[in-house]
Design a protein around this nucleic acid. Structure first.
Lengths: 157, 157
DNA sequence: GACAGACAGTTACATAATAACATATGCCGA
DNA sequence: TCGGCATATGTTATTATGTAACTGTCTGTC
């Protein structure tokens, strides 16, 4: 995931999915929104809003913060992008077609952000909340550490 | 937890524990740090850094941001305070004597932050990370929603 | 008392996000 | 085709959050 893959395909795939989703929902995938989504997908790392702003500025225009934040808000509402709270940064969603709970593995060395889907973990979260009689609306679950590449440990694959 | 309890006792308890811990570790629990810790413990809600700053200012001095952030950094290093990433706010730790993984239930109505300790959830987190061959260093696990009081639901107690 | 190291004060700035208002663009019905 | 509405974007200004770097101060030790 983190190295030596055809990342161009990742981007194309993300954009294609976004187009499809917005088409189906009747929401407008404008040029600006596409541009921001492409930038967020430049790698499998979380991207800062002001870095997006700088990139926009370099592309000629005179971009201001609201431009970026509004695009990000849209992309988040459509589930195309997630915010990483512990980094104040944004990352592309790998399976935007279905609404889901987000869980992230964040490597503090190579900065790769891997989105996780663990039913067991989902269950444990729900169970813990239920025990406290707590009605969950949304969750932030971000695990920091070293990814398999960076920790040097090997296992199955 | 959230209502009608002798909160003065909570504060006293937190300060006493902090004193003991710092004593044992040879770290200095200065007047400023104590003051900030007391402010953080004004309730069972997360407190914003700039609110602490305002309170300090009202108490006469001319406090600047680094004063507050340095105190908070110290308190976090000693495990006396946790940061709630999804709120950019800080909350007192309920059992600072042992290092532990932090998990929080955050009520979006009454703003109470309840620190949780669920071994099952810990296990699930470790398991999920292990599956991905990921070496966890720290985690952010924040569940937003309605606490038992605010959701009106009743269960055991 | 002189020194080292930790703590706190101060100035300035960097980064993150939003409010409020103005302008442009696309769409739909008359 | 034109007006008019809703959505999207531009623009200006400000608020919120956090840090760098330098200065002074305090405390314990020799």
């Amino acid at each position: 995931m983190t190295h030596s893959h055809d990342h161009g395909a990742c981007i194309e795939d993300a954009i294609a999915k976004a187009e499809k989703i917005c088409m189906e929902r009747g929401s407008r995938f404008t040029k600006l929104r596409r541009q921001i989504l492409e930038m967020v997908w430049q790698g499998h790392t979380a991207v800062k809003a002001y870095d997006l702003l700088d990139q926009l500025a370099k592309q000629g225009g005179s971009a201001k913060p609201p431009t970026v934040y509004r695009a990000l808000d849209f992309l988040m509402e459509e589930g195309l992008v997630h915010k990483i709270e512990s980094l104040n940064a944004y990352v592309g969603c790998i399976h935007p077609e279905d609404t889901h709970i987000s869980q992230f593995l964040i490597c503090d060395k190579c900065e790769t952000v891997q989105e996780m889907s663990s039913p067991a973990l989902d269950q444990a979260v729900l169970g813990a909340a239920d025990n406290a009689n707590f009605a969950i609306d949304r969750q932030t679950l971000e695990l920091h550490g070293l990814c398999s590449n960076c920790s040097g440990s090997k296992k199955a694959a």
